[in-house]
Nucleic acid binder design. Structure first.
Length: 412
RNA sequence: GCGGGUGUAGCUCAGUUGGUUAGAGCGCCAGGUUGUGGUCCUGGAUGUCGUCGGUUCGAUUCCGAUCACUCGCCCCA
């Protein structure tokens, strides 16, 4: 039995659901194109280094969630757990420093060996964008504006909340890390076990602990703002005033920290309360040092990724598919398929069953939500005509066979 | 990775205080209508009661393990 089940945390997308996914993806891509983005397709696996070097040794993604295996050449290969590292690698591999600034959109499956829950799968799908080569906070504003545009067009404007924070430049970050560590160390024994670990590995994460006791301690922690260099503060100020100017609603959350090590300056998250513990629906930030860290020319970047499954669970109305025309043969199926083919060549959506009497075929047409049925009866056939039934009104007409395309052309 | 819940027909779920033919609604199939769907009526099929093992004369029911889903934590899209 186990071999007939999909692997834990994976699942099949049947046509109805895959339609929703496709719509989410296409909506995101269409918006991204309006902002000048082109699609990049990178491999879904990379040498393990690509991820382990960039995501940080302390992140869970690297320490316990990667699908890593050795291939037949003895290389360590990893199924991509996120999109940015692969894009950064492709940027370097292809010498794209030539063509900055660069706006890239991507989509596709990601893999993380986590414990599955609703909205959390081992194979899931993301859409994302990366804007490379722009130092200015205008890039942050535009990238967040694109995220907001995508969510709005999916009808989720009222369901999500944008939280934003700055992690500062490396100088600010280091300074803050020190003051925060000093502060938290005083309360070390009062912290939860998880947070004591965080304190050692990545103290910033203590800030968004859900533990009550931790929260009380964190409330009085020195805020990040005080450790920011003037330049970092000015940068963040530009980002927030840019968003305000575009009328994009947001709240600043000084405790927002991103999990992956490569982020700096702007960090943001769109969250919902509708998905339980998996409330983050789209998230991103700036990563000015990532490409340099990988061995490429220092190139600033900012981007985000969104979970297609999570978005698709929130989306209500997916535009309905085109309603087909159903062909109903009365005896000569080959003649019927020829008629179907004519209409399809003319660009129409045409459905035709492979068996059954007329009643059954009409029922099928109805189930397919067909707009019209083309009935190929003997009587009309003798006059080189067909009957066209409007399935909404129940009215039907006889139309000469030769006029079919023209007839439907007028209706559409 | 840690802790809790659940697992009966394609779907949503009843049920069996352990007993021989396991149910409903929806869906599906057929008929009422030899050339007409959506409504209605009639009839029908469907389950290794998640899997493996244990206890028992007997297990879908009790016990154990396992797998999957699910809720929370960790973390994240």
């Amino acid at each position: 039995m186990s071999s007939l089940q999909p692997v834990r945390g994976t699942h099949d997308l049947l046509p109805d659901e895959s339609m929703r996914h496709r719509w989410v993806e296409e909506t995101a891509f269409a918006a991204a194109r309006r902002y000048g983005y082109g699609e990049i397709v990178t491999p879904i696996f990379e040498f393990t280094d690509v991820f382990s070097r960039t995501l940080g040794d302390t992140s869970d993604v690297v320490t316990k969630e990667m699908y890593t295996f050795t291939d037949r050449s003895g290389e360590s290969i990893t199924l991509r757990p996120e999109g940015t590292a692969g894009v950064a690698r492709a940027f370097i591999s292809n010498g794209l420093a030539q063509s900055l600034p660069l706006k890239l959109f991507y989509r596709g499956p990601m893999f993380r060996h986590e414990r599955p829950q609703k909205g959390r799968l081992r194979q899931f799908h993301q859409v994302g964008v990366e804007l490379l080569g722009v130092e200015s906070p205008v890039a942050d504003v535009e990238v967040i504006a694109l995220a907001w545009r995508v969510l709005s067009e999916l009808g989720l404007g009222g369901k999500v909340r944008l939280e934003i924070n700055t992690l500062g430049d490396s100088e600010s970050r280091l300074a803050y890390r020190n003051t925060l560590t000093a502060y938290l160390s005083e309360f070390r024994s009062a912290l939860s076990e998880d947070s004591r670990n965080r304190l050692d590995r990545n103290p910033l994460r203590v800030l968004d602990s859900k533990d009550e006791g931790d929260r009380r301690i964190v409330e009085n922690a020195p805020p990040m703002g005080e450790s920011l260099t003037p330049a970092a503060r000015e940068f963040f100020e530009q980002v927030t005033s840019g968003l305000a100017r575009l009328g994009i609603p947001f709240i600043t959350n000084p405790r927002l920290v991103r999990g992956l090590d490569y982020y700096c300056h702007t960090a943001f998250e769109f969250t919902t309360t509708a998905l339980g513990a998996q409330g983050t629906v789209l998230a991103g930030g700036r990563y000015d040092e990532l490409i340099a860290q990988m061995g490429g020319p220092r190139t600033p970047g900012i981007g985000w990724a969104a979970g297609v499954e999570r978005l698709s669970m929130l989306v209500e109305a997916v535009p309905s598919a085109l309603r087909p025309i159903s062909i109903i043969p009365m005896g000569d199926d080959l003649a019927a398929v020829a008629v179907a083919e004519r209409l399809r060549r003319a660009g129409m959506v045409v459905d035709m069953g492979f068996s059954g009497n007329m009643k059954k075929r009409m029922a099928r047409a109805n189930k397919a939500n067909a707009r019209f049925a083309v009935i190929l009866g003997e009587e009309e056939g003798a006059r080189n005509a067909v009957t066209i039934r409007d399935l909404d009104t129940g009215l039907q007409d006889e139309v000469p066979l030769a006029m079919l395309e023209e007839h439907f052309g007028r209706l559409v």
